[in-house]
Design a protein around this nucleic acid. Structure first.
Lengths: 335, 335
DNA sequence: TTGTACGCGTTATCAT
DNA sequence: ATGATAACGCGTACAA
């Protein structure tokens, strides 16, 4: 029928609401097992559920955590959300997920909404424009951690060592004997992308090499396809590093268009290790970031900040996952 | 500093809390523009944000909608969530997303939590075990709609006409001249899967044909790969229909393993049209369901149910998306 | 046009 | 060991 309140339970059990509240909050100190059981029975019988709004009003915690991502449709984010959710849930929090489409207005809008909802904290995996600084006014009076996307070092949050990832990719190609290597980066205004390219060129520099070319993509399959189609004709590289997996797909398509076999005639290495890459033929060699773990860690840091007031920062190390899209530099190549 | 309340605004503006509450709720009827502006100025100045917990306690609505999906990592769900979120947000609701991993316990757990959070309604895109009936006790006193996954017809919700989708797939292959067709289904206990196969066989039956074989997969790439590898050797089909896109990827891999070219020697048609399929080479022909629209519709129905008490059901029609993985039956085949 | 006072469901303080 | 009762921040009859 209607929703029962603590008051109903109290009346039906013949006790005061204080007593009911006590058994609810497991303050078992001093309380006859008899009344305890009596109250529990009535709660069971009426299928009573406490009202968190009322509770939150007095305890000042909603047990809600807000998560803002650019868009969950980007295959990079689902795992990250899962991680955050699992960890949050383990601590008794629920996750309110918001997609900002990387729009500053939407971000600000959602932060406002979430604060009104009295979320206990925020996980920001989006970024307002080029700098998160502009969000600062909106982030007053609320705990938050950054996750993955951030321009400058944040006080609290988690990110990947993107530079190390780029280095891993470069090193891997080098070890396979490649010397003529191309690179399709992400947008230069995104720090993650810049770092990946930096690591990549550092690896080549250590071998006294430099990329034959670096094209600026936008993380989309199509941008990479266009660049690869053009460059594959103009130049003769034996390997391409793309700053995410989606763009590696674009290179696959371009190679197919140019009649080049992967990895026999062209090695391809991506970045992220999103689930879809295992569906590619050949399976994609890539730089893996453990997004699930990063999501969990972000939530853990946030909960810690909420409950203990401590802030911390974590940097994850990427790993090289060798699959089928990279091979030793083709022998008999026109070196 | 601290969070301001309606009381602070009232005091600072020299009016009563009632007045503040009035301007807050835009009850502009009868109120001097002067005091109105005064209050607004103070709210602006203090960067006041109403507390939805307190508000919800009296209005009895949290402006929260719960969404339960099996797992957002399954590429089928992100778009669906986006749709639901966009629509919910347009109506002033925020979305609490929960992943049940298709576990009945988790579902029940989340429904309980969400009800405690006083969500105004639930979107259920998961299913408890084989029947949603078992969830009924948990769904007392709460508005909800079903989305996509449901065993029997629900009172309110949206789903795809899966039978029609299967029919479309069968018809398409028939029109390309195929007569020897295999099918890899999803788990038989899932209604969506059964319906797809039913539509598919109905199409063949209309041409006095029947599938050369039907193998029961589990929606995973690997299950389809195993089945296809085996059947591609035993039998000589010229086309395969898989009940989702992921399994089509498995068939791609098997065809590759058996040295068969798609679509030249083998046509493949999938189901769902998840984003990843555009990354495949060749691009996958598939039966598309507009998950974004379905998500929006589900949220719309729910909001309608919450705000107007009306319940409704919507059935979406799938469409055939012809890409590159299906072709006319190979000529000179060993008929 | 504006203000007073009560209630929403719960926790917390202080009695008993 | 248990119970009144005052908050929590807001909306809303009802009064002025």
């Amino acid at each position: 029928m209607t929703k029962w309140t603590i008051k109903d339970i109290a009346k039906k059990a013949g006790v005061s609401i204080t007593t009911v509240s006590r058994v609810l909050n497991r303050k078992e100190e001093g309380m006859s097992e008899e009344t305890r059981q009596k109250v529990l029975r009535v709660m069971e019988e009426l299928d009573y559920q406490p009202n968190r709004l009322a509770r939150g009003l007095v305890t000042k915690q909603s047990k809600l955590i807000g998560l803002i991502v650019p868009t969950i449709s980007n295959p990079f984010f689902p795992e990250l959300c899962r991680g955050a959710e699992d960890e949050a849930n383990a601590h008794g929090y629920s996750l309110v997920i918001c997609n900002s489409d990387a729009s500053a207005e939407k971000e600000e809008h959602y932060i406002t909404i979430l604060k009104e909802q009295q979320v206990d904290g925020l996980i920001l995996s989006s970024r307002s424009g080029l700098s998160s600084t502009s969000l600062l006014p909106f982030l007053k009076n609320v705990h938050y951690v950054h996750l993955d996307r951030m321009e400058e070092e944040a006080v609290s949050g988690v990110r990947l060592d993107n530079e190390a990832g780029g280095y891993l990719a470069g090193k891997h190609l080098l070890e396979l004997g490649h010397t003529k290597i191309g690179c399709i980066s992400g947008p230069n205004e995104i720090r993650n992308s810049r770092d990946r390219v930096a690591g990549f060129t550092r690896a080549l520099a250590e071998a006294n090499l430099e990329p034959v070319w670096i094209q600026e993509g936008d993380f989309s399959l199509d941008s990479a396809y266009q660049h690869a189609m053009a460059k594959l004709e103009e130049t003769d590289v034996t390997a391409i590093f793309t700053c995410n997996d989606m763009m590696a797909c674009g290179v696959y398509r371009a190679a197919h268009g140019r009649g080049m076999a992967i990895p026999k005639e062209l090695s391809v290495i991506g970045f992220d290790d999103v689930p879809l890459v295992s569906a590619l033929i050949p399976k994609l060699t890539t730089i893996r970031q453990d997004t699930y773990a990063m999501g969990r860690k972000a939530a853990a840091l946030l909960v810690q900040q909420i409950e203990e007031g401590t802030t911390d920062f974590a940097i994850f190390e990427p790993t090289l996952v060798v699959r089928e899209s990279t091979a030793y530099v083709p022998t008999g190549g026109n070196d």
